[in-house]
Amino acid sequence: MSDLTPLRDLLDHHVVGHDEAKAALLLALITREHIYVEGPPGTAKTRLAEVAAKGSELDFFFYQLHRDTRLAELVGDIVLERRKVKTEGTASGTAGEAERIHQRIEPGGLLTAEVAVLDDISRAPGEALNVLLRILNERRFGAEPIPLMAAIATGNPMDDEYYNEPLDPANLDRFALQLRVSGLIQSGVDEAKTLIDRFASGSVVEQPDPEPVTDRTTLDALNRRMYEVEVGAAVRAALLDVLRTLVLEFECNETNSLLTDRTFLVKAIKILRGAALLAGRDAVNLEDLAALSWMTTFRVPPEAHEALPRIIGRVSRQIQAV
């Protein structure tokens, strides 16, 4: 059994619906990958991340990005350091004093957090966004590694570009997992009723603080276990066939997609292992390939992304037939 069942139960207890987002969030925590969630305001994006962080006793950093976001608010204060240095006499003969001047940042915010929620990431001005994305990518600041396990970034749908250019796909590539969510009420699913009933019953505090149900040690152990999950030849062949289909049939190339070797040949293995682990297995099977859909959302053209479940189904049947 997966050790994250308590955390999943906790998420279910605090947030109604959004199965996909919950699964992807747990996957992000196990695989230590960042996740980007796009959806309209008020769809529990932030709440999910907060419950997950508090439920696992992780240092949590929440930041709402806005047009005037300052770098210091994200990473900490800028410090100018001066150190006295002796200098030898100069040509003019007088020995002098000198100062070595060094600029650094006193880490705070994102640099000390284990789980970070970056709300409305595309609203950040270029300056802050550049530094932010660099930190997420390198997972270190200067020479120092940072404790960040996963960042959860949220954004509003792309057609809302009145104030900002949409994030460049190359920037979105920093987030291995990418998904779209929609509101329960707007999409009219059954959970919408549950949601309303829950608040109508009057017995529920609107946003109760979750109790911790797991901790960093457990997450670290899971992360280590993930690397031991078996990825068999059949799964690898299926993954490759899916990718081949995207390249050859859907014409995904360097101009319209971000089908990089790092993401789809290295990180994909990690994601598949994480998915198997979440399902409580020691080996990846063909069902886990469905997790690939969380990787392609903004990396391939929409028609290719929409076709992915179909492609995976076809490829799986072929592999099983052999």
Binding site: V85, T90, T94, A98, R100
Partner: peptide
């Protein structure tokens, strides 16, 4: 490398 600001009283 780092900046060294030297002051010489003269």
């Amino acid at each position: 490398g780092d900046v060294l600001l030297s002051r010489h009283r003269h």
